[in-house]
Amino acid sequence: MSDLESLSAEERERVQMRREIIDDLDEEFELSLEDDAGGIGGLGAEERAFRRVYFRELVRLQGELIKLQDWVQATGHRVVVLFEGRDAAGKGGAIKRITQRLNPRTCRVAALPAPNDRERTQWYFQRYVAHLPAAGEIVLFDRSWYNRAGVERVMGFCTDDEYEEFFRSVPEFERMLASSGIQIIKFWFSITDDEQEARFRARMDDPLKQWKLSPMDLESRKRWEAYTLAKEVMLERSSIPEAPWWVVQGVDKKKARLNCISHLLSLVPYQPVSRPEVVLPPRIYHPDYERQPTPESMIVPELY
């Protein structure tokens, strides 16, 4: 007899629920292992203490994100969140923590590849419009139409005329979205030169992260100052009342995630939404039903 079988039904339910919660917390630890160069054992007392705060706050903020999601669904609100920043600035990690516990049908990520030959002949914003939210949806853009103000400008992928046209058009485009009822939130993740170099070197040495380093990322290291200038121009010329820029200090990844999520929550006027009580229906049994055995050839080998 297993340990669970010796417990009452109520006790078994409590144990199983506790295991589910622990499993979720274990997942959080797994997601954050990438941040610990020396592993868990290499952390000092202060770092371990903050780690406990981080996980506690992350779970609390993710609970608030679920409330926000429920409100967006109930009201038909539409939200677009743009994540911009230098390579390795922590955008992907923040997006991962935001979406981790949300319904992917309500909150989805748009990470568009470089435009193809046909898209290069379209209106610049056209391929992004297809990913905008419908009523009751949240869309997170992992890089956005601001590619033109950043990488395209620095790497010479657009002409001076196209660059200037972008800054003439983008305020009108975003005001048009805002007037149609789409809330636009724009985050720039800021890191230092030294921190980006450290993260790049960590990716070079880690086989699990090497895929994150593209030739374009490596080229960006040589053009740090050009990216800085492009970022300063972008923030100055495209921060408007309807869609202001918000700068996230990203040198400390965990603090950046918490600060980003907390600020995102503060910008959306969500309220708790009452849910109908969920009642589990009774299982229907049929005396003539007999479960058929699964063929051994279909069973996944149990290696663990």
Rank of each mutant, 00 (worst) to 15 (best):
R127G: 02
P287W: 13
P295C: 01
A134P: 13
S179F: 09
T159I: 02
G38P: 03
P287Y: 13
E47G: 05
D160M: 02
F141I: 06
E302V: 10
S262R: 13
S190V: 03
R143Y: 13
E11A: 08
A49D: 13
A256L: 11
V273E: 06
S144H: 06
N116W: 02
K186C: 02
Q210V: 08
Y304P: 15
M216P: 11
F125W: 12
G181A: 00
T228N: 05
L33H: 07
E64N: 05
E28L: 05
E242T: 08
Y304F: 15
A226G: 05
M234E: 02
W71H: 03
A198W: 15
G136F: 01
V170G: 05
G85A: 01
S220N: 13
V80W: 07
I40D: 06
L65A: 05
Q100A: 14
P269Q: 04
N147M: 04
K253L: 04
S2N: 14
E10M: 01
S239G: 05
A89Y: 09
V247G: 05
R127D: 03
S6R: 11
I66D: 09
L43S: 00
I138R: 02
E242D: 14
G41T: 10
I138A: 00
A130H: 12
A88V: 10
A110M: 14
Q16T: 04
S239H: 08
H263Y: 08
A149R: 10
I66R: 14
F141D: 01
R175N: 06
S180N: 11
R199K: 07
L264H: 05
E277M: 11
P215L: 00
L31G: 11
V247I: 10
G39I: 06
K255D: 15
Q122C: 01
I240R: 05
Y289C: 07
L213H: 01
D70R: 15
I182M: 06
L229S: 09
D3K: 08
G44A: 00
K209N: 07
G181F: 02
R203K: 12
E162T: 04
R118A: 10
S190I: 04
W123R: 00
R105N: 07
E20V: 13
A9Y: 06
D161C: 03
G250T: 04
P104M: 02
G156H: 03
E277K: 12
A110C: 09
P272E: 02
G39S: 04
E277F: 10
L33Q: 10
I182S: 01
E5Y: 10
K222E: 14
L235M: 07
Q210T: 14
R275N: 06
A226E: 09
Y128H: 06
E232H: 12
H286E: 13
Y128K: 02
G92P: 13
D161M: 04
R48H: 06
P207I: 04
G136L: 02
Q196F: 07
E195L: 00
Y270K: 02
M176S: 07
Q73Y: 10
D23Y: 04
V233G: 03
T75R: 11
I240Y: 11
A198I: 08
I22V: 08
I184W: 00
P207S: 01
Q100V: 12
P281A: 02
I98E: 06
T75Y: 08
H263N: 10
V79E: 09
G150D: 12
S214L: 05
E30D: 15
A149L: 09
V170F: 03
A134D: 08
I138F: 00
S238P: 12
V72M: 10
K255Q: 15
R201N: 13
A178N: 12
G136Q: 05
